[in-house]
Design a protein around this nucleic acid. Structure first.
Length: 306
DNA sequence: CGCGTTTGACCTGCGC
DNA sequence: GCGCAGGTCAAACGCG
């Protein structure tokens, strides 16, 4: 496994986000910024805002660097643990098999695994355990997992990935007190994709969505691109359809200040760099995203000034 | 009234 | 074969 690639991925994403600022002509940023505010502010205020914006960029860059270091350290720890586990499994193959409980397929597929996806570089999106224990299923259905952080008080099991899902069941499983919800893709009648959503047993604020199968239709949000609605949904679906394990943090998008409280446990290395690039590119091209970014920054700056 | 959700019953697969 | 647990079905229910 090449962890350096996904470390770089996170960096690239942030760097690209910085490019959003860089690519935006300074004049345009200022114009957008002040078009959102009362036009009472004059040129002196513009100077201050530009300075504050630069300061904010510095701060975010430093924060990003710090997070990257944390992530690197976490990767090393994870690598060590993983190699230890592999070593142990090689030495005690029988114990490993017998300890997985009654249901080999179910237990290897649900949230009894650690939140960070254990996945090699194989093309299959199934986990290592799945590919070992369920070769048949692995051939038939493509299984991927998405971890999504939600607000702790949010008790719903709704994962907004852009597709239309119809809930057909809910069950409380033995190893997790939180109920598991079962969904079928209802966008296309013949679409075989199923989704299971359950809260992580380790962290109740993390939703674990397991996707089975592949959509035989285009992503619904692609039809909505021209309307500019909910671009983040489009991004999440791109990730889930190609990456086996993805962590989405919806709470972070609500408050930039919360980005300091990253829970490394839910970070995932499985986002291909190409997809991240695509995500970043689509975001930078999105005028709505730019406007929202400027509005968020300006709002915070104005709040600080008051 | 139509559609989606809820929820108890039923089905299926696996281990003993 | 039995029991357990996960998965699915379908009638009842609620909401717009």
């Amino acid at each position: 496994m090449d962890y350096s690639s996904w470390i770089n991925t996170s960096l690239d994403l942030n760097i690209n986000l910085h490019r959003v600022h860089e690519e935006l002509p300074k004049k345009q940023v200022e114009d957008n910024f002040f078009s959102l505010d009362l036009e009472v502010k004059k040129s002196s205020v513009k100077q201050e805002s530009a300075g504050a914006l630069a300061e904010e960029l510095k701060r975010v860059s430093a924060e990003n660097k710090k997070l990257t270091e944390m992530l690197t350290e976490m990767c090393e720890n994870y690598n060590t643990l993983r190699s230890n586990l592999m070593e142990y499994m090689r030495k005690n193959p029988d114990k490993e098999l017998s300890s997985s409980g009654k249901r080999k397929s179910a237990s290897s597929n649900n949230n009894s695994t650690i939140p960070m996806g254990v996945n090699g570089t194989s093309e299959s999106s199934s986990t290592d355990e799945e590919s070992c224990k369920n070769p048949k299923e692995d051939m038939k259905t493509k299984i991927s997992r998405v971890y999504m952080r939600t607000e702790a008080f949010d008790t719903s099991l709704i994962v907004k990935d852009g597709y239309q899902w119809r809930k057909y069941g809910q069950k409380v499983t033995r190893d997790n007190p939180s109920p598991r919800a079962y969904f079928k893709c209802s966008f296309a009648p013949s679409c075989p994709v199923k989704k299971k959503v359950q809260r992580s047993v380790d962290d109740q604020s993390v939703l674990v969505a397991t996707y089975e199968g592949e959509h035989n239709h285009t992503h619904p949000s692609q039809m909505e691109v021209t309307t500019g609605s909910n671009r983040s949904v489009s991004c999440s679906a791109s990730l889930s359809s190609s990456a086996p394990t993805v962590t989405l943090d919806w709470t972070k998008s609500k408050s930039s200040s919360e980005s300091k409280n990253v829970n490394p446990k839910t970070e995932s290395p499985e986002v291909p760099q190409v997809l991240v690039e695509q995500m970043a590119t689509s975001l930078t091209k999105d005028p709505n995203f730019r406007a929202a970014l400027v509005a968020a920054i300006s709002g915070k700056m104005l709040h600080n000034n008051n």
